[in-house]
Design a protein around this nucleic acid. Sequence first.
DNA 1: TTGACTCTGCTTACACCGTAAGCCTACGGT
DNA 2: ACCGTAGGCTTACGGTGTAAGCAGAGTCAA
Lengths: 227, 227
Amino acid sequence: MAARRRAEVGSSRRSPLDRSRIVAAAVTLADAEGVAGVTMRAVAAGLGVEAMSLYNHVRNRDDLLDGMVDLVFAEIELPTAGAGWYQAMRKRAESARAVLRRHPWAVGLLDSRSAPGPATLRHHDAVLGVLRGAGFSVAGAARAFSVIDSYLYGFVLQEVSLPFRSSEELGEVAGGILGGLDAGAYPHLVEITTEHALRPGYDYADEFDAGLALILGALEPDERGEG
Amino acid sequence: MAARRRAEVGSSRRSPLDRSRIVAAAVTLADAEGVAGVTMRAVAAGLGVEAMSLYNHVRNRDDLLDGMVDLVFAEIELPTAGAGWYQAMRKRAESARAVLRRHPWAVGLLDSRSAPGPATLRHHDAVLGVLRGAGFSVAGAARAFSVIDSYLYGFVLQEVSLPFRSSEELGEVAGGILGGLDAGAYPHLVEITTEHALRPGYDYADEFDAGLALILGALEPDERGEG
DNA sequence: TTGACTCTGCTTACACCGTAAGCCTACGGT
DNA sequence: ACCGTAGGCTTACGGTGTAAGCAGAGTCAA
């Protein structure tokens, strides 16, 4: 059969396997099992392949993790200058938070990763571009970028590491921690828990917008008169 | 010899080994080798003991990591109400940052840790106490706490994961990343790097105080009129 | 004094990890 | 038809967390 000359038909024999397929499989696995579940053997198994085959496309496990982080960054919406820097930063931050919640392991990977990938660089460049275009000085853009991203990563880091996902779970956990202790040892934690966090309708996630608005409201372009 | 009745003299025979000695040894090891170097065998070796002996005092490796994080929190200065909430929050944040820089592995451990230890709880309680004492409402204190800590953790997370420690290293790294690419692919990153970050005297660490001041300045007690 | 119980450290063993080294086979260029 | 090479596979090694069981010392009852 002449058609067999090329394998592009996808002869079931062997699929091509390249870096991006490996990284994507690793991300899927991490979403399901956590980053600890991302072993070379497990990733390979997910692709119907042996562990050592991955090393033809990936330098080592660390390189794979770098790729995963970059793939996550690629999911974040790039900001656009159209609607003004405030809205652009706001939308970008919310998109980033949504993405990082979808891949909770990614934040914990941010430290220990040293080589930013192309998507990461493109993302940072776009953010700086919006700020500069809106009149922020170089130093001002750097500062705004630093503050916003610190808040963003820090919030998600805390959010993701909370040992509960819903309000009911919160109740159980808080009860477990505070209940087992000397009553009155942590009066303010008790207060904030019972009078605030356990109130129906409370959702810690809502704090994100509030904090973000507070920070964005304190920023402004072209800080000529400022120290 | 009657004195031998009690081993309290410290017969060189065997040292007692308890949880706190184990956790302290693990922290020392992590400071020196990074968190990946904290293996049960290595921690035990540092104490002149075999790996399995640790399990008499520590549930498992995860429990050990929990203990390490709590020990780090214990190093952070508790805020005191004396000089006003602004200065208290400022000093607390700077102390926390100094501690987390001393133990760079700790931030990365914050996620994946689910059981806060006593030092952690005491710390959070003290922060809330200062804010409440200064007139913040329960909701306001919760919000302030969330914003400040998010910024703090996020900043340190980024700071710690930077692949350099000094300005010269920054130059090399930046050159390596940006140099290997299409010139002009990331114009704003190039701009900020060459015109700002590589300027003599620039230190990213200084951004911390600026961002913190910006956030603290936007907070205020008793947000009656606010949404 | 003696014996039993408990506490704590040690030894051994297992499954799983990342990955170095080398083999085998199918494909593409000649 | 051949052969180099790329990209899979197999095997193997040292290191990991930790389950299971052993050994010696401290404490207490009889």
